[in-house]
């Protein structure tokens, strides 16, 4: 994690009751333990999300219980459920209105790829066509444990984000956009069908 201090020395100091940390570590520690999700659900995955926030699974253990009804106060967007093409512009707009640093969990098969409704004419085939996704959770719907796991993965990611130097966190880059273009309703599909700067699906090679 830190290059400034030797890991062994750090452990030795810690054994003596002296805690050494860096600004970056302290900052990330604070950030990762108070992720405020945006309070919005789209379909059945939202029920699992609600269960995760309720007493049995209790996302408060990870500091994520403050579901904000305003994107201005949210750090994390949990895209929980089927994204219809009617809903996609609203989601992108909400994402745009969130302040940096912001993260996205794509929860469930539908949010990842359209899931069981992939053939539907009105279903968006994955929210990563329009906004950058940090953690994907497969499942239909994923159980609350899976969401907690995704949350922990996100915490791990936040913890590894660097404030300075090479590999600096993306949101600190001034050139990195904070807003992404909102798709418009076209005659048959959303226009554009995917953000070409963002969406790079793997090429399928047929042999």
């Amino acid at each position: 994690m830190t290059e400034q201090i030797d890991e062994g020395l750090r452990n030795e100091l810690q054994r003596q009751g002296i805690w050494v940390t860096s600004m970056q570590e302290l900052y990330n520690w604070g950030r990762k333990n108070s992720i405020w999700p945006l309070q919005f659900g789209l379909a059945c995955c939202a029920i699992e999300m609600i269960a995760t926030a309720a007493s049995r699974y209790d996302i408060a253990r990870f500091g994520g219980e403050v579901f904000r009804p305003s994107p201005r106060q949210a750090d994390l967007m949990i895209v929980a459920g089927t994204v219809t093409k009617k809903m996609a512009p609203q989601i992108v707009r909400l994402y745009n209105q969130m302040p940096d640093p912001k993260y996205v969990i794509s929860m469930g098969a539908c949010a990842i790829s359209g899931g069981p409704f992939k053939q539907g004419y009105n279903v968006l085939k994955g929210i990563d066509r329009y906004i950058p996704v940090d953690v994907y959770i497969p499942g239909c719907p994923p159980r609350p444990e899976a969401l907690l796991h995704a949350f922990m993965e996100l915490q791990r990611k936040i913890d590894s984000q660097r404030l300075t130097g090479a590999g600096q966190a993306e949101h600190l880059d001034r050139a990195q956009p904070s807003e992404f273009p909102v798709p418009a309703f076209g005659a048959h599909d959303l226009q554009p069908p995917a953000n070409p700067d963002l969406f790079h699906p793997p090429e399928i090679e047929r042999t």
Binding site: R93, N96, L163, H171, D173, R174, S178
Partner: peptide, 20 residues
């Protein structure tokens, strides 16, 4: 140093419900 401002049309919009 660590919070570059990134204002934009959407972000500065008055309403925050997702609908224009």
């Amino acid at each position: 140093f660590f919070q570059p401002p990134k204002p934009g049309v959407e972000k500065n919009a008055t309403y925050e419900c997702g609908v224009e």
